[in-house]
């Protein structure tokens, strides 16, 4: 393996990683807004985690499904 080859490898690695991450990032944006719109997942309600943070407050998304605020109240 000569230096040239390693350099090429690094170059390709760099470009493809940037490409991959950029695509991933845009898919993430798309996913966030799609799932909000489609009603699959309400990301905005996660703000409540700071506002209603008493230890007895309703959980936004409990570890067990029956604790979920979504299941209990919304739908």
């Amino acid at each position: 393996m000569d230096m040239e080859f390693i350099r090429n490898l690094q170059g390709w690695g760099y470009v493809s990683m940037i490409f991959f991450l950029t695509i991933g990032f845009y898919i993430y944006i798309y996913y966030l807004y799609k799932s909000q719109k489609g009603g699959k997942k309400d990301y905005e309600k996660y703000s409540d985690m700071a506002l209603n943070d008493d230890i007895d407050d309703t959980l936004v998304e409990g570890k067990h499904p029956q604790e979920n605020k979504k299941d209990n109240e919304e739908r």
Binding site: F25, Y28, I29, E44, D48
Partner: peptide, 21 residues
């Protein structure tokens, strides 16, 4: 800020995107 003001974050999604960025 949200807790002291009683206001939910303007856009929680934006906070996630900014994080990864």
């Amino acid at each position: 800020l949200p807790k002291e003001s009683g206001q939910p974050i303007f856009s929680y999604k934006l906070s996630l995107l900014s994080f990864w960025g």
